[in-house]
Design a protein around this nucleic acid. Sequence first.
DNA 1: GCTTGCGTTGGAGTGAACTTTAAGTGATAA
DNA 2: TTATCACTTAAAGTTCACTCCAACGCAAGC
Lengths: 135, 135
Amino acid sequence: MTIAEVGKEYGLTADTLRYYERIGLLPPVARNKSGNREYTEADCRWVHFIKCMRNAGLSIEVLIEYVGLFQQGDASVAARKDLLLEQRKQIVEKIEELQGTLAYLGKKIDGYEDHMLKIEENLKKFDAQTTPEEE
Amino acid sequence: MTIAEVGKEYGLTADTLRYYERIGLLPPVARNKSGNREYTEADCRWVHFIKCMRNAGLSIEVLIEYVGLFQQGDASVAARKDLLLEQRKQIVEKIEELQGTLAYLGKKIDGYEDHMLKIEENLKKFDAQTTPEEE
DNA sequence: GCTTGCGTTGGAGTGAACTTTAAGTGATAA
DNA sequence: TTATCACTTAAAGTTCACTCCAACGCAAGC
């Protein structure tokens, strides 16, 4: 696959893909005879992984570390697993925090509902005083 | 409360609090006779709200909009509620996305566990071939 | 051969969100 | 009274994560 195709597939621009590769966030992608990147399925799986992890809020820094570990081969398997475990923990915490915020927001929204009901009531009273009955 | 105290309480620097106020992310805080900010409880509730919402990923832009609506008084109650409803929706989506990522990460971690087991097995085989039995 | 359209590079530019700095004010403690 | 300390402002600087650009290479179609 070409860089444009991969970009389209995963919702990244060609610029971003090249940028990620340049900074080591993606392992180097092999080139065809004209020097253009030719993404294999394995490359695409990397792109997918990186996209997912970025969306989940993992920093570029920690992902570069992960890619670096990967490139060291089997010796780094335990370190890679630990890194992922730590990041998973942080995502779990993030979810819990978001659920707390959700509860807080819910209360705030309920407050607005009450407020709006009261305003409506006042309007009705005002209507009753100032406009003739309609039926 | 002084700016430093509020900063400490909510995990923001005095710089950030002044910055937030300057850009309209926090309503103006009244000053004491020396011109220093004196945060009331209501101000603190604002700080708490903004901190929460920023942590949840709401943009400064949308929060400035919210503060602006608030300052318009009762006429903006419905608009404020709609804004919060929309942001809540986005947080719910974010949580769902994170849960998907969690599942994906879980599989990846399991993969590493399998991998490590295999490596261990190979080590044992190697031991069996090359070292004398121990009991 | 020329144009079009895809790709390449390195480096500069952008926008969001702070963060630091310079230069000052006012209150308190020694 | 002088030093210290927390605060003030406006403006410049920083960091992160892209995003764009200029200048070029290659290959297919006219």
